[in-house]
């Protein structure tokens, strides 16, 4: 049950090269959110409406960013998709299954805003954690952890302790850990939030490359418009509380490192960031954010 888990449901398109973000054409969406509301009870009798009427469909292989003002419910939406929270109303389906089933089937990997590594495990031990929980044998775990750490550029740090790593390195470990079960869906909550601009851009390029190599569907929460534009096929712009998706901006950047099937390939990241299409997309997202309300 290492790679795909017990999820042998009728989902043949799995991680194949087919990754056209074309609407409607794809058989089963990777994520389908319908009429989702989330209300938190507040101590003292009141309630916080965190999300209201969210509809979102993410095609297999697609990269979608969630962007919006602080407190608009981005993390909440991600947690709902991950079945770490129960919706108050509406429905979340992941690869055609209810979110809970997808979680039990290990269809997604998640990385929270804080790296959240277990301090008593080495870097490799942290990456192995999900595999160990799922009963993967030691030798296999070791090999997988080594591959993943190489993927995030931390091959030399396998035996280090989390406390010996910088914040950015810890976040890369968390991303490697999220990839351990070869999930078809990657949920990332501001994974580069606390990084300096240069490291951040390097890690964005790495994420684009990882996504390119593994054909994973990604939902990324971010506060950075350029980051969202650089990485995404589509950017979902959210309004302040109660959070709604006010607009979805399609991003079309020539030469960008996208899904494996796409044209482009491994262009230089800086070239992508300097073309006019990039600035146009940034402007479009910024205007959508502004139109959403006081941000």
């Amino acid at each position: 049950m290492t790679s795909t888990g017990p999820a042998t449901a009728p989902a043949p398109q799995a991680g194949a090269a087919e990754a056209a973000p074309a609407a409607g054409a794809a058989p089963v969406p990777a994520v389908e959110v319908r009429g989702l509301d989330k209300v938190f009870p507040v101590s003292g009798g009141g309630q916080t409406v965190a999300l209201s009427g969210i509809d979102l469909t993410v095609a297999p292989g697609e990269f979608v960013s969630l962007i919006g003002p602080s407190g608009c419910g981005k993390s909440t939406l991600l947690r709902l998709v991950a079945d770490l929270l129960e919706p108050s109303a509406g429905e979340v389906r992941v690869f055609g299954k209810p979110a809970g089933e997808a979680r039990r089937g290990q269809d997604y990997g998640i990385a929270f805003q804080q790296a959240g590594l277990l301090e008593w495990r080495t870097v490799a031990g942290n990456v192995e954690l999900p595999l160990q929980v799922h009963g993967v044998r030691k030798k296999e775990r070791r090999a997988r952890a080594r591959d993943l750490l190489a993927l995030v550029g931390l091959a030399d740090f396998a035996d280090h302790w989390p406390a010996q790593l910088s914040g950015g390195m810890q976040q890369r470990v968390a991303i490697a850990r999220a990839l351990a079960e070869r999930p078809r869906l990657l949920l990332l909550d501001e994974p580069f939030g606390a990084l300096d601009e240069m490291t951040r851009e390097r890690m964005q390029a790495e994420l684009a490359r990882i996504r390119h190599e593994t054909a994973t569907t990604v939902i990324l929460v971010t506060h950075s418009i350029p980051e969202a534009v650089f990485l995404s096929d589509r950017v979902a712009v959210m309004s302040p509380r109660p959070g709604r998706i006010t607009r979805i901006v399609d991003i079309d950047l020539p030469n960008r490192v996208g899904a494996p099937g796409e044209s482009g390939g491994l262009a230089d990241a800086d070239d992508v960031r300097e073309q006019s299409a990039f600035f146009a997309a940034v402007t479009a997202v910024r205007e959508a954010l502004r139109a959403g309300g006081p941000a």
């Binding site: 290990q106 997604y108 998640i110 929270f112 277990l118 929980v133």
Partner: peptide, 27 residues
């Protein structure tokens, strides 16, 4: 263990015993 670590184990669909063994006891 903080809510983040507990959620992480939940995202792995880890049973209570696995959470005890891998997270709570070492912590």
């Amino acid at each position: 263990p903080g809510p983040n670590a507990v959620e992480l184990m939940r995202s792995y669909a880890a049973s209570w015993w696995q959470t005890l063994l891998r997270l709570r006891l070492p912590a």
